[in-house]
Design a protein around this nucleic acid. Structure first.
Length: 274
DNA sequence: GTCCAGGCATGCA
DNA sequence: TGCATGCATGGA
């Protein structure tokens, strides 16, 4: 991976296994929007970014070398060798075919708070609606960090809302979960930084103790927000996939179950619609 | 009108 | 421990 500054853009070269559309729009994160020129715009960690693939390189606009090093490099998981991991995952026949078809899905390292709130909203919901709710949440309660683009609102900010305020965003019955979550994180009753430093077993136990967080939401938060790439969330789509693994997950997934899961999830959404 | 979506809390056995 | 049920909302 090579990054360099050229005029007012950053140029990223020699990055393998990164398909922007598949990674940014496959149900991991809900805030990225494709622009007319084929680039992708979004906000994470309070920073705006526009990124586009041109030939073999990526062009990053409206950011800085400093933000790349501090935020985006880790956000796109660029230090992980996805080529080698995909080779190993391809020992499984089904995953092998999905990797051939959807090559370039990465696991985004999102902020724990954003991931947790996003996946509480996600339960019993569809991706289109989740995006709409989260956009409204950010546009209404976040801070503008770039022309028309808002940060994900902090727990402190969201703790000032009422349950009715959350309902107005369209969160439905999840409003009461979000209210309590915001209150508990803002007050320090729940300490996400502490959870981030725990081992997987303890971190999962902590998340499961949160009102409105069950095993599926916990696994998604752990995978996308706490960097536990061995987590394997099972939602309604993955339940349909599990019929292909009656004897459990294959050995070649070990340690990278979450990456295999994303390929299978994407495949299921495109092929198991009945 | 009915079914479904990156499920969970609750009550009951 | 496991299973049934209610739950908000909007698109198909």
């Amino acid at each position: 991976m090579i990054i360099r500054e050229e005029q007012d853009v950053l140029i990223l070269e020699d990055v393998k296994c990164l398909n922007l559309a598949l990674t940014l729009d496959c149900g991991e994160a809900f805030r990225w929007i494709e622009q007319e020129d084929g680039s992708w715009s979004g906000v994470a960690y309070g920073k705006y970014l526009n990124i586009k693939k041109e030939d073999d390189r990526f062009i990053l606009k409206n950011t800085s070398l400093e933000d790349f090093e501090n935020v985006w490099k880790n956000y796109f998981d660029l230090d992980r060798d996805y080529v080698a991991i995909c080779e190993r995952l391809k020992e499984d026949e089904l995953v092998s075919s999905t990797i051939d078809e959807y090559y370039g899905i990465r696991i985004l390292n999102q902020e724990p708070w954003e991931a947790l709130v996003s996946f509480v909203i996600s339960q019993q919901n569809n991706i289109k609606r989740i995006k709409g709710i989260i956009k409204k949440l950010c546009d209404t309660y976040g801070d503008e960090v770039f022309d028309g683009w808002y940060s994900f609102p902090s727990a402190k900010k969201l703790s000032t809302l009422t349950v009715e305020d959350f309902e107005k965003l369209g969160t439905g019955y999840r409003a009461k979960y979000l209210k309590k979550l915001a209150d508990d994180v803002a007050s320090g009753t729940i300490d996400l930084n502490k959870i981030k430093n725990m081992n997987l077993e303890d971190a999962k136990k902590e998340l499961l103790s949160i009102y409105g967080v069950g095993i599926k939401v916990a696994n998604c938060a752990l995978l996308f927000g706490f960097q536990f790439v061995e987590c394997f969330p099972i939602d309604v789509w993955m339940k349909r996939v599990m019929q292909f693994y009656p004897n459990g997950l294959p050995k070649c997934f070990e340690g990278y179950e979450g990456i295999a899961q994303q390929y299978l999830f994407h495949w299921a959404r495109n092929n198991l619609k009945e």
